[in-house]
């Protein structure tokens, strides 16, 4: 069943916000405003937004290193995300995390530096929700490369055995850094692993936001009803390199172009127009609003202060008694 118009508009709006913000980050990175390595999720928007919009504010999210879209989908403000990537004191992790985006007020629990480290943490968040007797759901994200790590097996199997409300989402974009999926696994679908854990495994077109949304809703309903985890695999493609210094020469330009033709946002726009869900005027006005929001986020981040030097020492421990005098 097609979601209500307000949901469709929210999906569209947030996909656009993700795209525009990440495109702005490409420029800001080039200009030197964003230090370190920047891993963008341009091309992934149907998955990052389609799986987060159906979640409640108190549900938990443990995304991976391409977490801009997921954060926006869950309700983290664009301005604090951007300020974080720019190392500012106003960032959502106070400028101490960078890629480690978090916002506990909307259930964004953070990211693991090691790929897949987040999977076992999500299992724990699911365990916590179950033990506390809430119906909170945890969603966790990883790529097809990470699905070969031991923590994938340990986290999903334990969640399956304990029937935990955790949704494991594989964003399969064909390449783990430079390595094609065909070199790292014999089967076509990561979701096939679900059979081994005794849980449902679902393969979905990861560029079709409505298909993603529907699969996610089913998984959420299962999780809230105490029926345990689901493994969802969305097939998609990242348009940029693994990070912004990676020109991704290991990919055939024709392949990249073919996937760009399958742009999840364009595709959704065509659908919304064909079904007469939003008018061209509405669409233009949403685009203007989102552009403005991104510009405000840029202004906010650029005008934000860097952390004070003493911030280096603060907060290592929640209870620093007996420790600070050593620093």
């Amino acid at each position: 069943m097609l979601p209500e118009k307000n949901v469709l508009v929210e999906l569209y709006r947030k996909m656009l916000l993700d795209r525009y913000l990440e495109e702005a980050m490409v420029e800001l990175y080039r200009q030197g405003y964003i230090p370190g390595s920047l891993h963008l999720g341009i091309g992934h928007e149907a998955l990052s937004i389609g799986t987060t919009v159906p979640l409640r504010r108190d549900d938990y999210l443990v995304f991976s290193h391409r977490g801009v879209g997921h954060s926006l989908g869950k309700g983290v403000p664009a301005r604090t995300i951007l300020a974080e990537f720019m190392g500012r004191a106003t960032g959502c992790s106070l400028g101490k995390g960078g890629v480690h985006l978090s916002d506990f007020s909307v259930g964004c629990l953070g990211i693991s530096g090691s790929q897949g480290g987040n999977i076992v943490i999500a299992t724990g968040a699911g365990l916590s929700a179950k033990m506390r007797g809430t119906d909170q759901v945890t969603a966790v994200y990883f790529g097809e490369g990470t699905a070969n790590r031991g923590c994938f097996h340990e986290g999903i199997n334990q969640a399956a055995v304990w029937r935990l409300p955790v949704i494991f989402i594989c964003e399969n974009d064909l390449y783990s850094y430079s390595t094609h999926q065909s070199k790292i696994m014999l089967r076509e679908n990561v979701a096939d692993h679900a059979y081994g854990y005794g849980i449902p495994g679902v393969v979905v077109d990861g560029n079709d936001v409505l298909a993603v949304y529907e699969a996610m809703q089913e998984a959420i309903a299962r999780a809230r009803a105490g029926e345990g985890p689901t493994l969802i695999e969305g097939k998609t493609y990242r348009w940029r390199g693994h990070h912004e210094k990676d020109p991704a020469l290991y990919r055939d330009p024709a392949e990249v172009e073919a996937w760009k033709q399958k742009c999840p946002i364009k595709r959704f726009e065509l659908f919304l127009q064909a079904e007469r869900i939003i008018s061209p005027e509405e669409q233009a006005s949403i685009q203007d609003e989102v552009r403005q929001e991104v510009q405000e986020a840029i202004d906010f981040a650029l005008n934000s202060p860097f952390p004070q030097p003493e911030e280096l020492y603060r907060g290592v421990y929640a209870n620093p008694a007996g420790i600070l005098d050593l620093i």
């Binding site: 076992v120 943490i121 724990g124 945890t138 340990e154 986290g155």
Partner: peptide
């Protein structure tokens, strides 16, 4: 068994899940 949990033979999830539970309101 809810509060004294036998886990799988899998240390990564024992500690990883401990962290996940700890940051969401439990004290494992």
């Amino acid at each position: 068994e809810e509060r004294v949990r036998d886990t799988t033979l899998a240390e990564t999830v024992i500690i990883g899940a401990g962290v996940g539970a700890a940051i969401t309101g439990m004290r494992p």
